[in-house]
Design a protein around this nucleic acid. Structure first.
Lengths: 273, 273
DNA sequence: ACTATATTGTTAAAATTTGTTAGAATTTTT
DNA sequence: AAAAATTCTAACAAATTTTAACAATATAGT
């Protein structure tokens, strides 16, 4: 990966998140923090970002749009850690399905940081944000599932979506979930069921990727049993009791530790009048 | 492999990725890094790229974003006029297909300006920009066709796309074209053929919407005869001879007059997210 | 076939980029 | 306010990339 590429990655992260930390970028890009710092200095010189303690901030944006609290709520660090683990399941040239959601988006972003994967994989997704990201930041073969557009999710669901997926042969599918417990992945939304089922069936291996805050929540419809998946990737926030119970019931539980610190600390924002 | 061929390979890699590394290209092309470097120097001399550490970067535009925005400004008044006419073919509650392209985007924009249509119609499209616009600015039922993502167009094409469309019942389809003449709509891109054919077949009525500058251009593949469509909506720039010839051959030709009011002012960018 | 010209590969030194460290400065916690 | 943790700076070593010169190979013209 050449310097210009790395800086482009930081620019794109900056665009979608407003600010990024040095530790985070260094982890995702696999380079030293010093290198990231120097890249950010370059971005500052060209006026794209300004350095703040621990990272950089996109210029011409009000920080209160993406405050620290928001980021915590989104469990960003956990998602990056989950993404890092998920990436290790992917070999160059693999055919991958990404379910809708920010966790899967984090995996897609991680892919674009790896030049050996970025252009060799084949990606299918029902999520517009994921497809958009890969459309701009990778050169892999890329498919959208199509289907009925769900505005809230920026994704597609329903029979058409499931039908398209069911005709594919995939190496690995990453499923997201807004609710899961010791036994099931569930959802409140009926048309998502067939989509996730189709993806799990179409892929040789499928994994649930979901941060621990989603655990214990209950959707009205049960989708698939955890045992039927090839693994669950989640963070260490999962209660000890649940970890034991899941492991015992034969689930391949992968717990990741969010190493990279959170976003750079926000200096007090001066409200412009 | 001759030098010109190699440089073309690098050019196209540069087109789709914005930047490429020397090591990458040397590996893919099976030549020494020095040779790739010299090729890139040649590309730099002709102004196609600039050398950066470790590789080369496409000059000008950032990651293929300008072409789309640029296109949008082209023939803008004509497209708005065409859109106005197209809108008159749509009744509230209609099921509509929009082909890819800025002309169809203009129609979609026109729909969101009509409250009696905006939330009652059902829209299907293979264009991400069209879907994104309606996702944000309307509340209608909305479907994306899915399929293989064509980065240059921000749209989907291919067998999957055509197959999804073929299972629909549509009231009206608006087809775009980058090239058409007195007899045929044509395209240089093979996977677009089946998509347009499927849309024309799935819809009770289908129209070609294309500004007159596209007339007389020739794509390698002929797609569909103009007589098979229910109408052509184009602007008054179409040569008089062509107008006569088309009308005589039984084509329902609709000529619109772009008003000067529709000046191509800085139209805001549609967020693709 | 033979020479002239252009293209490609190889190498070594120069320049740049990157990683590592240790101490200074800053921010956060106690 | 002091202590602890983190982040920044600067300097140097290590790795990579660039440059430039030359040898090897290919191509074109006579």
């Amino acid at each position: 990966m050449i310097p210009a590429e790395r800086q482009q990655f930081i620019r794109s992260a900056l665009d979608s998140r407003g600010m990024v930390s040095i530790v985070d970028m260094a982890g995702q890009l696999g380079v030293s923090q010093m290198t990231v710092r120097r890249d950010m200095q370059a971005l500052e010189k060209e006026g794209y970002a300004t350095l703040v303690s621990g990272g950089a901030q996109r210029t011409g944006r009000i920080a209160s749009e993406l405050p620290q609290a928001e980021k915590r709520r989104l469990q960003y660090a956990e998602k990056v850690a989950i993404a890092r683990k998920a990436i290790s399941m992917i070999r160059p040239g693999a055919a991958i399905y990404f379910d809708a959601g920010t966790t899967c988006l984090a995996i897609a972003e991680a892919i674009t940081a790896r030049s050996e994967l970025r252009d060799s994989v084949l990606v299918v997704s029902n999520d517009f944000t994921v497809v958009s990201h890969l459309m701009h930041n990778a050169n892999c073969r890329l498919y959208h599932t199509g289907g009925e557009v769900l505005r809230a999710n920026k994704s597609c669901v329903g029979e058409i979506t499931a039908n398209v997926i069911s005709r594919l042969n995939l190496d690995v599918a990453f499923l997201s979930a807004s609710s899961w417990d010791a036994e099931w992945i569930s959802t409140p939304s009926e048309p998502k069921i067939s989509v996730k089922l189709a993806a799990a069936k179409a892929a040789r291996r499928s994994f649930l990727v979901a941060d621990s805050t989603k655990f214990g929540r209950l959707g009205f419809f049960n989708i698939i049993k955890l045992q039927e998946l090839d693994g669950i990737i989640t963070d260490a926030g999962l209660p000890q009791a649940a970890q034991v119970q899941l492991s015992r019931s034969g689930v391949n539980l992968m717990i990741v530790q969010p190493t990279s610190a959170e976003a750079p600390i926000n200096k007090e924002e001066i409200p412009l009048l």
